[in-house]
Simulated scan of single mutants.
Amino acid sequence: MPLTRREVIAGGGGLVWLAGVPARAETAYPSRTIKMIVPYPAGGTTDLLGRLIADQFKNGLSATVIVENKPGAGTTLGADQVAKSEPDGYTLLMATSTTLAINKTLYKKLPYDPVKDFAPIGLVAGVPFALIINPTIPAKTLPQFIAYAKSKPGLAYGSAGNGSPQHLGAEMLKTAAGIDIRHVPYRGSVPAMLDVIAGHIPFMVVDLQPALQQIREGKVRVLGVTTPKRVAAAPEIPTLAEAGLPGFELVAWQGVVAPAGTPRPIIDQLAAQLSKLLADPATREKLNAISLEPLPPSTPDSFAAYIKAEVDRWALIVRNSGAEPE
């Protein structure tokens, strides 16, 4: 009767028989550098958040964590790199609603599948937007601006690019307010906002973080934020729903994902670190300082379900806008 593996190992001859077989002991995670890919330029909101999360992973997991910025092609370059990386927990993506929801409909040939090619880890923060206008426009309230826009069909607005949340937010405003406006795409929020300040374009929907200082200095006039509730970083600014468009809501989101197939124990380790980060009052203050809204705790499974729902929700907005990739 042949010996079992346990019996062979227990016998003295078994030690000789196994001597040439390499050991396959599991190495505890993490044992080498973790790379966080941020598909946006350095210094922006997503980059700042990515570095905050990287610090948490570094301290909580006693790991070396580096942030690598890989902007381009509407975040698809960085996302595609992560999607095709080894699913071992050492390459992560700072994902946004653009990357995992909007792009699914915007691009006819997206190089990755937002649902199938990633293992969700957790949602972190929401990105509020604001409707800003050049101060020379004779409107100090949202109803006054809507009346002004109706008197000037084809009024131009700027955005961070075709299919960006800023673009889609303005198109949502167009539908909700019944105004005729014309899109002028820029390569980023800041160049568009600078042209609003200079009076080259009259208005835009902009992410609040880069606009807040300009608002407080009076370089632009703000008519409302797009969140369902007032933003903690600027509680003096009413929501657009309060200001005259009931039900209006536009909030982008930020989260962390890994390549599909990453072992669930690793995903759970990383998710636990995100939960610790969001439970820290100091973190909430840091997020508020960069005009981000901390989101309720999520699990990898709830985040996966959320992404699927967001793909469907944004698909309708993208189609209605007529947006196409640049």
Rank of each mutant, 00 (worst) to 15 (best):
A139P: 12
L123Y: 06
A19T: 04
D55I: 00
I133K: 07
K58Q: 14
A170V: 09
A79F: 13
V124Q: 10
L48M: 11
T262V: 01
G60L: 09
I132W: 05
I317T: 13
A83G: 08
G244T: 12
T136G: 02
Q209Y: 13
Y186K: 14
P114C: 02
K308P: 11
R284W: 09
V220C: 14
A271P: 00
R284S: 12
P259S: 05
G218A: 15
Q273V: 09
R221Q: 15
K152M: 08
I66C: 09
A232E: 15
L106H: 04
G188A: 05
L61W: 02
L194E: 15
L49I: 04
A279G: 15
G14R: 06
Y90P: 07
R313A: 12
Y29E: 03
A101W: 01
L123P: 04
M36E: 01
A271Y: 01
R221T: 15
P300G: 14
N103K: 12
V231L: 08
P111A: 03
L52C: 00
Y90L: 11
V67M: 02
R5N: 07
G244H: 13
L93K: 03
A101E: 02
R264M: 12
R264I: 11
Y306T: 08
K109Q: 14
T75G: 06
T27S: 06
Y40E: 01
S291N: 12
I201E: 10
K150R: 12
E236L: 12
A234Q: 09
H183D: 09
L93C: 05
E217D: 15
E171L: 06
G178C: 07
Y90W: 09
T45F: 03
A156V: 06
D207Q: 14
V256K: 02
A10T: 05
N103I: 02
T46I: 03
Q213G: 09
A170H: 13
N320G: 11
P39E: 04
Y29W: 12
T45D: 01
G199D: 12
S291G: 08
S321F: 00
A63F: 12
P325N: 06
A323Q: 00
P120Y: 05
T283D: 14
E293G: 01
D268V: 13
A176F: 06
G74T: 03
K150Q: 11
G261C: 15
L274I: 10
G199L: 06
F145M: 11
Y157S: 05
P296K: 14
G44Y: 00
S31Y: 10
G178F: 04
G78N: 08
E171G: 00
G14V: 09
Y107A: 01
K286N: 05
E86H: 11
E326R: 10
D47A: 05
P41L: 07
N59P: 02
E7H: 03
A258M: 15
T33I: 11
Y306M: 10
H183W: 06
M193T: 15
M193C: 10
I37M: 04
A176L: 04
I317N: 00
L18Q: 13
L208H: 00
A170L: 14
L92E: 07
A252R: 05
A23I: 00
L287T: 05
I307F: 03
L3M: 14
I133F: 08
S97A: 11
T33L: 10
T105Y: 10
V8G: 00
P297H: 13
N69D: 05
P111G: 03
A28I: 04
L61M: 11
S62E: 13
